[in-house]
Amino acid sequence: MGEFRLDGNAAAGPLREVFSFEVTTAQYSCVGCGRTDRLGAAMVYEVRQLGTIVRCPSCDNPLIRLAHNREGYLVDLRGTRYLTTG
């Protein structure tokens, strides 16, 4: 079961399971380096069937960790200062 490096876009489906807005066009601010950009431009590491990590392309800080099992979700946002839409 490999780990795949993809674009933020690849996490759009799983993230829409927990966010009610389109996340790939939302702006994030990275706790690690302060970079702000659209989540679609961040890097996504996806471990099949287990979860997804969205990382800052500048400093590799994990912005969002999303894991799920049959019972529910774990959403870890400690690497993101804020998300803004619009």
Partner: peptide, 9 residues
């Protein structure tokens, strides 16, 4: 299926 998904690309 579910979608459409994504808006960045």
């Amino acid at each position: 299926l579910r979608g459409p998904i994504g808006g960045y690309f």
